[in-house]
Amino acid sequence: MRTTLEAASERAAQLETELKRTQATLAQSWALTQRMLRPDAPPDLPNVEIAADHQPADGVGSDAWGWVMQPSGRLACFMSDVAGRGMTAALAALTLHTAIKMALRLGVTPSETLRSINAEVYPHYTDAMLLATAAVFTIDGTTGAVEHASAGHPPTLLRLKGTWQRWPATVPPLGVQPEITPETQTATLAPHDFVIVHSNGLADDLRNAVPTHIVDELQPAAAQAVAVAVAAAAKQQRGGHPPTDDQTLLVAHVIRSFGSA
């Protein structure tokens, strides 16, 4: 006949096995979520090159970014950042990433993408006490026309003919107000122009200002070189320590005149 101690020991062993199984399942789920938040390889375009750099913090991140080609032939790029960490924020980031990508694939404009998605997520974000910033821009591959909209995201940087511009968000983050109408910001890109979008974590380390002089000093430079240099500046700013928040940078660079192959 088993003693009480033997029964307790057996039950403890069962609980330990169940705990390990649960932890393994969670680890697989987290890994899958993180993979789904990462974009495929950037499109091979004749006039524009795309690069990104991502420095994850410990745990499950909530930055998402990507690019798609729209039915019109425009390149659409986006970045979103859900406030918070852990599985709740990661799952919110995944659904937001999917919604933005689907809207852009259908040819929806940046402003309308953010407006319509905010209308859908607002009640759910309110219940869960979540909010998310997002920036979206498109580039016309034949004219260089860029169209941009942002909800609460750090300012998007443009280098136009050697001069820097900042396009700030024109509405609060997604989930803050039931209805938003982001302003559409436009410009026309030329060879050697850049569009740079970055996450809140990178903005914090760089004291809310990407060191544009680094980009200027690198000219002429490829998009990937710019992404690596800015990420290195952020690492230096935090003394080489790991980031406390996900840091993501997306760079679009015009490599030749539009209309030329």
Results as ranks from 00 to 15, higher is better:
Ala99Gly: 12
Ala89Pro: 05
Gly107Leu: 05
Pro110Trp: 00
Thr109Cys: 04
Leu106Cys: 10
Ala99Ile: 07
Met87Val: 15
Met102Asp: 10
Ala89Ile: 06
Leu94Gly: 14
Gly107His: 02
Glu112Lys: 08
Thr98Phe: 10
Ala93Cys: 11
Gly107Tyr: 03
Thr109Ile: 03
Gly86Phe: 02
Thr113Ile: 07
Ala103Leu: 10
Arg105Lys: 13
Ala93Gly: 14
Ile100Ser: 02
Ala99Leu: 14
Gly84Asp: 02
Pro110Arg: 00
Ala103Ser: 15
Leu96Trp: 01
Ala89His: 01
Ala90Ile: 12
Arg85Asp: 11
Arg105Trp: 04
Leu96Met: 11
Ala103Thr: 14
Lys101Cys: 15
Leu96Ile: 09
Arg85Gln: 14
Leu96Ala: 09
Gly107Ala: 05
Thr95Pro: 11
Met87Arg: 11
Thr113Arg: 02
Gly107Val: 09
Gly84Gln: 01
Met87Leu: 13
Arg115Phe: 00
Met87Trp: 04
Ser111Gln: 04
Ala103Glu: 12
Leu91Gln: 12
Leu106Val: 08
Gly86Val: 08
Thr113Lys: 03
Arg85His: 15
Thr95Glu: 13
Pro110Ser: 01
Leu104Trp: 03
Ala90Met: 11
Gly86Lys: 06
Ala99Gln: 12
Ala90His: 10
Ala92Leu: 08
Met102Thr: 15
Pro110Ile: 03
Leu106Tyr: 08
Pro110Leu: 00
Leu104Asn: 03
Ala99Ser: 14
Arg115Met: 09
Thr88Gln: 07
Thr109Phe: 02
